[in-house]
């Protein structure tokens, strides 16, 4: 098996040490960083995402794969900075104010990182201003909002309204998600997109990035 495929395979199995070792070997053999990232780590994570979507694997398997991905990423990051290889784009993520549930949001973060995006994770219980302030400061074109509680969903509207108020509608797009959230709700509050899971979040971000 090609070294690059070994990276992808070990990532899919959630083997952190192996993923790091093969990534290290690829770096030593001067495989281009972009290729290690795209055909190794991102390719592996894409398979994991698809299997998760099809219910062939479950959250624990995704979390283990994510740890393996981070083990590989840690080795690649310094080289990406040195060689000035840009990420595919920045996304600000968080669970909205009043909501402490972060499993869904974390899953979205994993899938987006696994697709090569840079994630600024604000955690949970995040006020509307912080989403917008961070997106402005980081020049991130997309914010992703998560809510599990029906009672915290109105904070999503606050974020959309704040972006509008600051005249940033053309520079910052909003994706919302979470168990009680729907496409209809996204349209109601004027969010750009609704994402129903982590894999779909990647598709949404890709769509918005192309548009932008």
């Amino acid at each position: 098996m090609e070294l690059i495929d070994k990276i992808s395979e070990s990532l899919q199995k959630g083997e952190q040490e192996e993923t790091a070792r093969y990534t290290g070997e690829a770096i030593e053999q001067a495989v281009p960083v972009r290729q290690i990232l795209d055909d190794g780590l991102i390719a592996g994570m894409t398979v994991v995402g698809q299997k998760f979507k099809n219910h062939d694997i479950f959250l624990p398997d995704v979390l283990m794969a994510a740890k393996a991905m981070y083990a590989g990423m840690d080795l690649l990051k310094p080289l990406m900075i040195k060689e000035d290889i840009p990420s595919r784009g920045k996304v600000v993520l968080g669970t909205v104010r009043g909501d402490l549930h972060d499993i869904g949001k974390n899953l979205v973060a994993i899938m987006l990182k696994g697709a090569g995006y840079e994630i600024i994770d604000l955690g949970n219980d995040v006020p509307a201003e912080k989403f917008v302030d961070t997106a402005m400061a980081e020049k991130a074109p997309i914010v992703g909002l998560s809510a599990l509680l029906t009672t915290t969903m109105p904070v999503m509207k606050q974020v959309v309204d704040l972006i509008r108020k600051r005249g940033l509608t053309d520079t910052i797009s909003v994706i919302i998600g979470g168990a009680p959230v729907s496409d209809k709700y996204a349209r109601e509050i004027g969010a750009d997109m609704y994402s129903f899971d982590g894999v779909n979040a990647v598709e949404c971000v890709e769509k918005l990035m192309r548009k932008g």
């Binding site: 099809n54 219910h55 062939d56 694997i57 479950f58 959250l59 624990p60 398997d61 499993i103």
Partner: peptide, 11 residues
């Protein structure tokens, strides 16, 4: 409920 039967979030 999944096409493969019932599973918890953790499988």
């Amino acid at each position: 409920r999944t096409p493969r039967g019932f599973f918890t979030m953790m499988g």
